[in-house]
Amino acid sequence: MCILFIAVNQHPKFPLIIAANRDEFHHRSTTNSAFWEHHKDILAGKDNEAGGTWMGINKNGSVSALTNIRALNKDVENAITRGELVLNFLLGSSKQQKKYAQTLTDSRARYNGYNLLFGTLAQLYVYNNFEDTCVALDDGVYGLSNASLNSPWPKISTGRDALAKYCQHADVLDTEHLFELLHNDKLADDSALPKTGVPIEWERRLSSIFIQSPEYGTRSSTVLLVDHDQHVVWEERSFNAQAEQTSVQHFEFDIKKE
């Protein structure tokens, strides 16, 4: 998962809105989101190479999503797959949050760079293993990509502004507008590009919210809505290397009452 836009208590009907794109090499084998066969309370996609996932929710209301941190020359030898961090949180209790934050701190050196969004409707956190910081998300709109939370990258600012404006003016939430936000393929001006160590051609290519190239790009877009009655709407749209939509997965369920 490479970009997340999160609205916490910004819409009158939906206290939690997440709009997210997963960017990945097109050759990497993936299973579309579904309730997992051996963990039937977990709704998530699956990375078939490493066995983890990039974003998911369970029927107890635990939510988690991952973005990698783009940092050349900082790879960890024999690093553990970061996708297990999302899965491990979803497999645990919804009351584990503080404990899980400590688990992330204790294991941070075993993984390449990442941000992990985790928590429940009551409280979400973002942990950054490079900075060893865990930030509680108060009411507001957030953007998370391949650096720190709310880094001033053009695509982060564009997505945050669009989501904030939509939450303020949408009496009825139309998920099509959220998918339009996620499908924004406008590249940033060279003068505004971040300098993350990759060649300038890649900085340009990666500067849009929706990424398209023959070898690497946006593989799926996901919209997650949770309303005040704790009813969950999850829709995922998958894309091929030509940015053509290939499938849609739609699920709805109510979070279990404790």
Rank of each mutant, 00 (worst) to 15 (best):
E201T: 13
V76Y: 03
N112R: 06
S208E: 14
S247N: 06
Q245P: 03
N60D: 13
P199A: 12
S247R: 03
S94I: 00
E235R: 11
N60Q: 14
F130A: 06
D132P: 02
G83T: 01
T133L: 00
I255S: 14
D174C: 09
A162I: 12
P214C: 12
V8H: 12
N112T: 15
A122M: 02
I211D: 09
D229L: 04
G217W: 04
L72M: 10
F179K: 13
Y125P: 01
G217P: 08
G113C: 04
L206P: 02
H27N: 11
L90D: 00
A136C: 01
Q212W: 04
L87C: 02
N68W: 04
I18R: 11
K186A: 13
W54N: 15
K13N: 10
S191E: 10
L104W: 03
S238C: 11
P214I: 03
W36T: 00
H183M: 09
E215G: 07
C167T: 13
A71L: 04
E49A: 06
W36L: 05
Q245V: 04
S107F: 03
G143I: 00
W153R: 12
P199G: 05
Y100R: 01
Y166M: 11
V135P: 02
T196L: 06
P152F: 01
L116F: 04
L104H: 10
I209H: 06
F210N: 07
Q96G: 02
W54G: 15
R110A: 13
G217I: 07
D174N: 13
F14V: 13
E203T: 11
P154N: 11
W54C: 15
H11F: 04
F89G: 01
A65I: 04
I156P: 12
E49V: 08
S93R: 00
I209K: 03
K13M: 08
R108Y: 13
D47G: 05
N184G: 10
L149Q: 09
H228S: 09
D189P: 10
V135R: 08
K74P: 12
L144Y: 02
L90N: 01
C134T: 15
L124Y: 01
E131Y: 02
H27S: 13
A162Q: 15
D254H: 14
A7Q: 11
S208G: 10
A122Y: 03
T222D: 03
D185L: 04
N112P: 07
A170C: 08
V232Y: 03
H250I: 10
L149A: 05
W202Q: 13
E176V: 06
P194K: 12
R237A: 07
P15M: 05
D229G: 08
C2D: 06
H39L: 03
D190Y: 08
E49I: 12
P15H: 05
G197H: 05
R28M: 03
M55P: 12
G140P: 14
K74G: 15
A170I: 07
R22E: 15
H250T: 14
H26G: 01
L163Q: 07
T246W: 02
N150E: 06
I17C: 07
D174Q: 09
D189T: 15
T175E: 11
S247Q: 08
K59Q: 15
K186N: 14
I57H: 05
V126M: 04
N146S: 06
Q249N: 12
I156E: 06
S93N: 14
A44M: 02
H26W: 04
N184H: 11
Y114N: 15
